[in-house]
């Protein structure tokens, strides 16, 4: 019998933070987005900073911000391994805006190589958070609640 669900599991330094049944997962691969349905072939992918979209078994759709990592896909499970994963509605938009501003300032200063690498990452992370927040709430409603 063909399965129509798979487990979506997320592990971070905070332990297993998500473990639930879903019907579809969209991952931000390094070379582009990839959609995963149940019964997918085993896959090991490196993830970029970006958005994960999940369709839950009850029909709800959930969006997440992910800060790089890996995903192991098995026919019955997608396991995301990352440093941090945030639900779109939990993104601290003010913090993200502040970090984006800081990162841009850091990138404008002439400094050592290593600092730039960190600043670029910070910029990409904050920009992704702002983007995911805006598609979740709409760009005109930056302040939820």
């Amino acid at each position: 019998m063909k399965n129509d669900t798979l487990t979506f599991k997320v592990v971070t330094p905070e332990g297993t933070i998500i473990n639930e049944l879903v019907t579809f997962v969209k991952l931000p691969g390094i070379t582009g987005e990839m959609g995963i349905l149940p019964e997918h072939s085993p896959l090991l992918a490196e993830l970029d900073i970006g958005k994960i979209r999940v369709h839950k078994a009850n029909g709800d759709m959930v969006r997440f911000f992910v800060s790089e990592g890996f995903a192991q896909v098995m026919p019955d499970e997608v396991m995301v391994m990352t440093e941090s994963l945030e639900r779109a509605e939990d993104i601290d938009i003010e913090k993200a805006k502040k970090e984006k501003k800081e990162a841009l300032e850091e990138l404008n200063i002439e400094d050592k190589k290593e600092d730039k690498r960190k600043a670029r990452k910070k910029l990409r992370r904050s920009a992704a958070r702002i983007y995911i927040h805006s598609i979740h709430f709409g760009p005109s409603h930056p302040h939820h609640h």
């Binding site: 390094i30 070379t31 085993p42 896959l43 090991l44 992918a45 890996f70 192991q72």
Partner: peptide
């Protein structure tokens, strides 16, 4: 074997 994304050598190295 897994399908790798991007290339196998890159994924293995970083993983």
């Amino acid at each position: 074997d897994y399908i790798y994304d991007p290339a196998k050598a890159d994924v293995l190295k970083s993983f």
